[in-house]
């Protein structure tokens, strides 16, 4: 075991670690995006196929065995709507899936399963990645009051309008997805929407929140809403 051997082995370990880190960054910045984009395109394709086949209502609508009519829920892990935010680009189109579990958020935006359904009275709340996994909410800070958030569940177009500039809060502040979020300026029940993502861009110390209210709805048969370009 000579000094030459020690120096050489140490150098090789350093080069190996460096390569490993570079590869991991490539994985995070590039590969998760490739995987997520294809997964999200797949979800949107599946939804459009379902809607074309006429199966518009989510399948999980059987009455609860308990007898009393509980609020219907979407099926966990399944996509049920498509979201459009023109502010993020004319071609910004993402699927919305039920549940905010990490593996669900890799395939699209996640609907908090405790919150209201699309278009209902209450707060339809959705979380999405700001960075990695396709960067769906990369431009979140650019949202401004009046911006449209358009969703389709196959039967109806829902146009929500943003009411505030993105609001920064702490991760434990679950009040932001309450049926009537206190700090949003809404007073009284209504049909609201909340978007959440991480803040700062690459960190996790805070969350960024945007609130919106339902502005209009129209049947899909009547064409795309005017809030959408094209």
């Amino acid at each position: 075991m000579t000094l030459r051997w020690i120096v050489r082995t140490f150098s090789e370990i350093c080069v190996t670690l460096g390569t490993l880190i570079v590869l991991f960054v490539v994985y995070l910045l590039f590969w998760t995006g490739v995987r997520a984009d294809s997964a999200m395109d797949g979800e949107i394709g599946k939804l459009h196929d379902q809607w074309a086949a006429g199966q518009v209502t989510p399948p999980d609508t059987a009455p609860e065995p308990g007898g009393s009519e509980r609020p219907r829920r979407y099926e966990a892990g399944k996509s049920f709507a498509v979201m459009y935010i023109p502010r993020f680009g004319a071609d910004w189109t993402k699927p919305v899936l039920e549940s905010t579990a990490p593996d669900v958020l890799k395939r699209g935006l996640g609907h908090y399963d405790r919150t209201a359904r699309l278009g209902e009275v209450g707060n339809f709340s959705v979380a999405g990645h700001r960075r990695t996994y396709g960067d769906p909410f990369k431009d979140f800070p650019r949202l401004r009051p009046g911006d449209a958030v358009v969703l389709s569940d196959g039967a109806t177009w829902f146009t929500y309008r943003i009411d505030n500039r993105p609001y920064t809060t702490l991760p434990g502040d679950t009040g932001v997805i309450d049926p009537v979020p206190r700090k949003s300026g809404f007073n009284g029940p209504g049909r609201y929407l909340t978007l959440t993502t991480c803040e700062p861009e690459w960190g996790h110390s805070h969350r960024l929140i945007a609130w919106a209210h339902l502005d209009s709805t129209q049947p899909v048969a009547h064409g795309r809403p005017s809030a959408l370009p094209g």
Partner: peptide, 29 residues
Amino acid sequence: VVFVLFQYVFPWAEPLLPFNDVTVDEGMA
């Protein structure tokens, strides 16, 4: 080696980094 890293090792290591936390939840504490 690259395949094993991308398929198994990095997906395991990735949740240890903060980019996954996009929800508001008591559980996230």
